[in-house]
Write a protein that binds this DNA or RNA. Sequence first.
DNA 1: ACGCTGACTATTA
DNA 2: CTAATAGCCAGCG
Length: 129
Amino acid sequence: MPSSKKPVEKLRTINPSGSKDKNFFELVYEVARQIPKGKVTSYGAIAACLGTKSSARMVGWAMNGAHHAKLKVPAHRVVNRNGMLTGKFHFSPPEKMEQLLKKEGIKVIDDKIVDFNKYFWDPIVELGF
DNA sequence: ACGCTGACTATTA
DNA sequence: CTAATAGCCAGCG
């Protein structure tokens, strides 16, 4: 990953004529915002909620743009399937992610959430899917 | 226009 | 049990 460290502002340009792709990013942000404090979820869960469970990577990519999004998105509450903070290095200070999680009552050891299953928040279930 | 990379996940060896 | 591989889709050189 030597390259590809550019601002994702171009993400807004991906939509030529108001396709649904733009909506996809919006949906990701929306779902992420629904995550209650002290809870976490995975990229795959959000992807599945949107119907694109096979494209969990796109959710992660959406998070990339979440930082520049107008509305705040608790990206720190979104981790991978193992409960590991794989995206911590994408935060302003990488430590900010686990810092926020610990602040919300979630224990993080070695970049991994303790009792992940216990704090897991499934959008498919919680949002009524 | 082609190919590599990536905040993922599930499957196969 | 852990390691490698294959789908996934959009952005960038």
